[in-house]
Amino acid sequence: MIIKSIDSPIEHGQKKGNPNALMHFGVGLSSKQRDLLLKLPDFDSKALVEKNAVSMSDLSALTAFTGDEFAMFTKNKKRLIIRGNANSVNIDIDTAKSLAADGYRWSGHTHPGIGEFSLVASDGDFEILSSFPQTQSVIYNSLGNHEVFY
C-alpha cells in the first residue's frame, strides 16, 4: 500500500488490466490489452493472435472497459477473438459449426455486468456449445469472475 500524499488516494497496488480494478478503481487496460483492443475496434471485429498473447481475464478486462462481449476460440497455438456488443456476438450456429470443423474449440466468452446473474449462460450459449465436440465452456463477467456451463 503506497500513500503518495495526504491528499491523494491510497493506492492499493491495483494492477492495470485487472478487470475488478477496472470496474471499481478506474485503472486502465494493460498495454497488451490496449494493443488487442486496437485490433478489435468495432462489433464483429476479429483478431487472430498467439495463444499466449491473450487470456479470458484479458477479455474480461476488455469487457469491463468497453461494455461489450468478446468471444475466444482456440486452435493449436492460435486464438481467434471476436468482438460483440452489449448482448451479442456475431456467431450463429452455421459459423460455430464452421469454426468447429476447422479445428477450433470454444474457449469462452464474456458477459458485461458485475452481478452473479451476468455469469448465467443463455440458450444461445448452449446452441453454440452443442456445435463443438466439447462438453463445457466458460463465461467471464466484467469483474473477472467466471462460471462454467455444460
Binding site: N90, L119, S122, G124
Partner: peptide, 29 residues
Amino acid sequence: GRGKDDFYFAHSHPNGLHDGSRGLLDDTP
C-alpha cells in the same frame, strides 16, 4: 453452471428469440 465454490440453476428466458440457429446473436442470459 458452476464456479470455483458455487453452482447455479437457470431456466430458459421466456423472451428468447431462439429458433436453434441464432446462437450468440441473442445472448440474453
